[in-house]
Amino acid sequence: MVKVRTKDIIEKFGLELIAGEEGINRPITTSDISRPGLEMAGYFDYYPAERIQLIGKTELSFAEKLNNSERQIRLERLCTDITPGIIVTRGLDIPEEMIEAAERESVPVLRSKQKTTRFSSLLTNFLESKLAPTTAVHGVLVDIYGVGVLITGKSGVGKSETALELVKRGHRLVADDCVEIRQEDEDNLVGNSPELIEHLLEIRGLGIINVMTLFGAGAVRSYKKISVVMNLELWDPKKQYDRLGLDEERMKIIDTEVTKLTIPVRPGRNLAVIIEVAAMNFRLKRMGMNAAEQFTNRLSDVIEDGDHDDR
């Protein structure tokens, strides 16, 4: 499925369509942008034709110094059957040779009033967000004290009910049931809710509730970086659960590893409070304060002191 087409950036940035209207449905497959300075100079050996071509004052002023024949040939070679678009910045005048070539090859030629560097940054950020690798996870995403907590577990284990209790305690719901996740860079996962179920929670026996309507706009947010995964599972008496917190389990989502905590569920355990405290403890660890390590070190000191006394 094509994520971004040339017409999407026209609408996003309010670009002026100068030529090549037939090509506005061309797919954009990479967030990389090309500034074809070398191509203007005649070097096309490594021309990245599949990228958006961004032309500013430098490239156009160089093109003006070329003779008519050279300018026509080089501007024609910029327009290929896979080029998603050519964008001219600063509201500059566009050479007729480029307009004619773009019409023949159906390459959209667009114009922006913004400065080249500024527009390049905005366009790159937009394309990286839209073209980032994505996946969907069954779970609940909640913002707890600024920590994005993805709550996972089998159906019926109590994820949504826990999220409701967390919202009542002042935290913010991002997504329930289905969390759409995109990898914005190597170690940055951002989760959001599908538009259809945004702000909604499904509580068995109660049905679907609108969190924003019930608790206000401060109880929800549109997206959040995922920092930790907390997996709820029914208590297994045969399983040894981590009691100190020294063993850090990791979970891979797309290409990014995040910390994973396994929280056993059984009657009498207040899951909302446990998850809330786990989120606070995670923040402390990131600040360099690890209670489990401190306890272990103190225990080691006591044992060593005891050995010295025995001597």
Rank of each mutant, 00 (worst) to 15 (best):
K7Q: 11
D8Q: 00
I9H: 00
E11D: 11
E11W: 08
E16W: 11
E16D: 15
L17R: 05
I24C: 00
P36M: 05
E39R: 06
G42Q: 00
R51E: 12
I55T: 04
T58P: 01
E59T: 03
F62T: 07
Q72N: 11
L75Y: 01
E76N: 15
E76W: 05
T80G: 07
T83Q: 04
I87S: 00
T89N: 05
G91I: 12
M98R: 04
A102K: 13
E103H: 11
K113D: 13
K113H: 14
K113L: 14
T117Y: 10
R118S: 09
L123R: 03
L123M: 14
N125T: 07
L131A: 14
P133R: 09
T134F: 02
T135A: 01
V137P: 02
G139D: 06
V140M: 04
V149Q: 05
I151V: 11
G156W: 06
K159E: 03
A163I: 03
A163Q: 13
A163H: 07
L164I: 08
L166N: 08
L166E: 09
R172F: 06
C178Y: 05
V179A: 11
I181R: 06
L206C: 04
G207P: 10
N210A: 02
F215N: 07
V220M: 11
R221D: 02
S222Q: 10
K225T: 06
I226L: 07
N231A: 12
E233Y: 09
L234Q: 14
D236I: 10
P237Y: 02
K238G: 15
K239T: 14
Y241V: 11
R243A: 09
L244V: 10
L244S: 07
L246P: 01
R250Y: 15
T256G: 09
T262Q: 03
V265G: 07
P267N: 08
P267R: 10
R269T: 03
L271S: 05
E276Y: 01
N281D: 13
R286W: 01
M287T: 10
G288V: 00
G288D: 08
M289A: 12
A291N: 09
A292L: 03
E304F: 03
D309E: 14
